[in-house]
Simulated assay, not measured.
Amino acid sequence: MNGWLKVFIRFIECVIILAIGLWVTNSILKPIYEQYGIMLLGNVWVNWFGVSYLLFVWYSLLLGLSPVKENKIYKQRINSGIFWVLCIGAIYVVFVPFVKGENLF
């Protein structure tokens, strides 16, 4: 497969994950936050990115652990240290407001 086509496919994957993350943030996370008395105000994009990155992690794990030959990039991704550090950061962004009782961002 052409190198530029692979780059384009990865770009489309990221855009789709960001779009789904925005929908999840507004449709699912916001009502859950409001149910616990947490207002989703301020830099909502931080929460949006956290949700999107968690979706990206699940997507990468699903494809990286599947027995398909053409998943080399996903296996490299899940073996990366920065991938897991960013995952911990995304978990912090999404779940710490439940502990603190307010959105910190």
Score class of each variant (00 low, 15 high):
92 Y>C: 03
75 K>F: 11
80 S>K: 07
35 Q>D: 14
100 K>S: 08
3 G>R: 14
25 T>C: 04
10 R>P: 02
50 G>M: 01
10 R>L: 13
93 V>M: 13
77 R>Q: 10
60 S>N: 03
26 N>Y: 11
80 S>P: 01
46 V>T: 00
94 V>R: 04
43 N>T: 12
95 F>Q: 07
46 V>H: 08
15 V>A: 13
48 W>I: 04
47 N>H: 06
1 M>G: 07
102 E>G: 04
25 T>N: 06
98 F>V: 06
59 Y>M: 09
102 E>T: 00
32 I>G: 01
31 P>V: 11
59 Y>Q: 01
99 V>S: 08
97 P>V: 10
100 K>I: 08
74 Y>T: 01
93 V>T: 09
93 V>F: 12
49 F>G: 04
35 Q>F: 12
57 V>L: 00
67 P>K: 08
5 L>A: 05
28 I>F: 15
23 W>R: 00
88 I>C: 12
15 V>L: 08
60 S>A: 07
51 V>A: 06
90 A>K: 06
46 V>N: 05
88 I>F: 15
80 S>G: 00
64 G>D: 13
74 Y>M: 07
69 K>S: 08
100 K>M: 12
31 P>I: 14
21 G>Q: 10
20 I>V: 12
103 N>P: 02
71 N>C: 04
40 L>A: 12
70 E>W: 11
61 L>R: 02
43 N>Q: 11
98 F>C: 05
103 N>V: 10
62 L>G: 01
69 K>H: 11
12 I>V: 03
54 L>M: 08
7 V>T: 13
104 L>N: 09
84 W>K: 09
65 L>P: 05
29 L>E: 02
32 I>C: 05
35 Q>A: 10
84 W>S: 06
74 Y>W: 15
95 F>E: 06
45 W>V: 06
52 S>Q: 04
48 W>V: 02
73 I>R: 10
68 V>G: 10
57 V>I: 02
